[in-house]
Amino acid sequence: MELKRKDLLDIKGLDQEEIQLILDTAESFKEVTGREIKKVPTLRGKTVVNLFFEPSTRTRTSFEIAAKRLSADVINFSVSGSSVSKGETLLDTARNIEAMRADFIIIRHPASGAPHILARNLRSSVINAGDGLHEHPTQALLDMFTIRERKGKIEGLTVAIIGDIAHSRVARSNIYGLTRMGARVRVAGPPALIPAEVETLGVSVFYDMEEALSGADVIMVLRIQLERQGKNYFPTLREFARLYCLTQERAGHAKGDAMIMHPGPVNRGIEISPEVADGLSSVILEQVTNGVAVRMAVLYLLSGSGEI
């Protein structure tokens, strides 16, 4: 079985077998990342371009390490602010990069659908590293990988996703992926942070956090963007934290062996308390480690799509 696609734009378009393949492949790459020499020659001579229109040291570094461990050359383009203000469109920028013979373009962009513009117009493989409020597919893959590694399976688990669902691409990708893999997904947050008709994606909606956590196998806490304050999604961060901060006591409503996840960076004391973030059930650092293996798997599998 192979991944028959040029680009990885979203989880929504992946079927169960494809997700399975990526996770299985990532398992082999995790072994590689545990070696003394963590580098294999697989993508020697290939060029990977990180095209980041939003600052994100984490995701960029993770992709960079993944590409380098596959022996690819990595070039980082950070575009601060909007390219439009410089009179250059996204497509112009991308065509320029492709003219430099990039095999992969990894794009992070504040506008939903920006990677799709590239994918439609370029021959390079495009990997979505987070677009607007839409998706962050590799994050969901590494989350699923981490869950599967810990719990031995995804099917049948109850996963509670807590916080700003509406503005979270991590939430969307995980909702698509987890439901496709047979998990029961709950989302919880104040009504203004729950996107319209989200039930149609196969999740159940809770406003009460404790109810949402009750009996959960996995708790996924989302980062709350501090800028959301003052837009009346909720009155203050203080009250948000009072209602939705994952504390030790609240975590007790989930199953005893529930694992706690967060895509990072963490706002300690706002969406998650420091004891929980650093506690035994927290897999936050494992998520980071697994991120590299999953991204290596994605690069490897896409390079075999025969399109590049």
């Binding site: 079985m1 192979e2 072994e31 993508l43 001579g45 798997a297 390079s303 075999g304």
Partner: peptide
Amino acid sequence: LLTKKGHPAVRKTD
């Protein structure tokens, strides 16, 4: 690898 279409599955080295 880079000349062929479609990649073989990668399994673990141990």
